[in-house]
Write a protein that binds this DNA or RNA. Structure first.
Lengths: 342, 342
DNA sequence: TTGTAAGCGTTATCAT
DNA sequence: ATGATAACGCTTACAA
């Protein structure tokens, strides 16, 4: 009587001549099962093309086979890379990805998240920065009993609940490269307060200058908020300083694109008059002129690992010891850096 | 005995002194209900903070409260805009968005989709181009009994199942603008075969030239596939033609960025030596140098309307007569167009 | 207008 | 190692 070829556990049980529970055991890979029985049931399952109904499972298990992606990220490319990595991990599994943007500024943010998690009874959530940097969010997940993994630019949690990049060191290396080229007056376009990544990158910048014994006047630091426009404005301030910086490190690519515009509006040639280094390696980096030297962090891989940590062991609670938690960023050298003219 | 404050329909029924079914009727806004009873039940619901369990509803209704986003789109920004529009429509409803990328090239694409829709028993799906242009996909949804709305660059379906932009006319207008500026040798970087949008845009291009009585030699058309690199290659071919085109219309912004690179590599000044018009108005358009004149289509609004069509009337089958189906694109004038020199 | 009983398709409990 | 029976929380007949 199945209308759409949707056979149920009952069909399988009847045809295989066993009880529903036995079929259920096969599905859930219960260890205490006769090999013969298992094989027989599996044959029937294959024959019928039977697929367990996720809705029924969700009801009985009080847990949905959904992985949430919680974010409040202004950068489209970053979010897409994360989605791509997650979906790679989820592909071929019984899990689906449901996306949930949240307003981190809102007073009800935590309540919104709680409602979302409780109502949907998510299997787990992947927390993207900057929301992931909020400890009360992690605590909330713990309280509710929802698995979570946080993405971030520093290890904020144990390896079961965190995948992190090494922004500080990566920026240190990038700025050291600038110094090796001969630059001494290097400006920083910093990211927004409240972003851990902004802090990490700024510290990496300061580390590099300190390691080279270069003083860092306050005038060489301008604040931005990760947008193109803010990068443009920050660059204008930096380029007003006399003597002008010969290089600028921008805490992300989008602001770096703004820096390029600002420089070009003043008739400055890049990289002859001004070297620029960005961070992220979004497509924009390769597509501006000149192509931007920048730091690439393996965001899709991080998201993939995060998702794998989440679903490791399926319904059982095995920890995912295999997945890495720390990811290394690398400097991508393109055309926006040269030795200073003077 | 509710552990986490999760009260059920039984709790509500007991406290309100009615049967489950009555509570269910309140939840589902059944018309045949005593006003007093309804109010009383609603009070208890509010008091308890009761929220119907979506998993149980899904099982009983054989339909999940999930809206799928099905896409195989290379452009991150486009996908994100669609997601944003969808989520706007879904916000505050009982629906969640689940994202499902599909490989349109794969032989199993249709089967993959069928499995996805049947297993998850989605409430509905939003089909993005170019997958939305595939009629068998729409037919599949019909067969399965899954609501769908297609997004595209031309009306491929009735207004209940389609939201479309007017690419052809928009490009016609954009290229006419070029002609008004005095351009006569205008090159086209076409989009990939198999994309309806590519065809529409190309036709708009041809329309404009025809309307102005300008001949279109084959050499003024170069194929691309919507990527930066393909735009660069196509531009090189176009710029090799003697006499050189004074303007190029690129079927999307990313390829237009490639055109800019190609021009710059030859030492051409934009817009003095070459005017360029793109399509999409992705962030890249405003961030390249010079800022790109381009066609903006209201993608988020389209996705929002599409989602609203999908969920209109909730579980009941009311058609969404209110939501528009045709969306107009507009030309955004920036710095990449000037009058030709000669 | 409201209630009762029987599902929806799975898993958990507790036997055997 | 397997099975009968009762959940899981809601909806849909069908009565009353």
């Amino acid at each position: 009587m199945q209308k759409t070829g949707q056979s149920t556990i009952n069909d399988v049980a009847r045809i295989a001549g066993v009880s529903k529970k036995t079929v259920s055991r096969v599905i859930n890979r219960s260890p205490l099962l006769n090999e013969d029985t298992r094989r027989r049931v599996e044959e029937v399952i294959a024959e019928l093309g039977y697929i367990p109904n996720p809705q029924a499972r969700a009801l009985a298990l009080r847990r949905n086979f959904l992985i949430g992606l919680v974010h409040d990220n202004p950068n489209a490319q970053t979010v897409m890379n994360v989605q791509q990595g997650m979906l790679e991990a989820l592909h071929g599994t019984e899990f689906e990805m449901v996306v949930r943007p949240l307003d981190r500024g809102s007073a009800t943010m935590l309540d919104d998240l709680r409602h979302f998690l409780e109502r949907q009874r998510l299997f787990g959530v992947l927390l993207m920065p900057p929301i992931s940097e909020n400890d009360s969010v992690a605590r909330l997940c713990d309280d509710i009993g929802c698995r979570y993994v946080r993405m971030g630019s520093a290890m904020l949690d144990d390896t079961d609940h965190m995948v992190a990049s090494n922004d500080r060191e990566a920026v240190h290396a990038a700025v050291s490269f600038l110094i090796e080229q001969g630059h001494r007056r290097i400006g920083l376009v910093a990211g927004p307060h409240g972003f851990r990544s902004a802090r990490e990158r700024r510290q990496g910048f300061e580390d590099a200058l300190a390691a080279a014994g270069i003083a860092l006047p306050r005038s060489m630091i301008a604040d931005g908020n990760y947008t193109f426009d803010s990068g443009l404005v920050a660059a204008e301030r930096l380029l007003d300083v006399v003597p002008r910086p010969t290089a600028i490190f921008s805490s992300n690519d989008e602001m770096a694109a703004g820096v390029i515009h600002a420089a070009r509006q003043r008739g400055l040639d890049i990289p002859r008059d001004l070297s620029i280094v960005g961070f992220d390696d979004t497509p924009i980096a390769a597509h501006v002129w000149p192509p931007l030297t920048t730091v690439r962090w393996p965001i899709a891989s991080m998201a993939r690992s995060a998702a794998l940590k989440l679903i490791a062991g399926g319904v059982e609670q095995e920890p995912a010891v295999e997945e890495p938690s720390l990811f290394l960023s690398t400097l991508i050298r393109r055309g926006s850096v040269a030795v200073p003219r003077e």
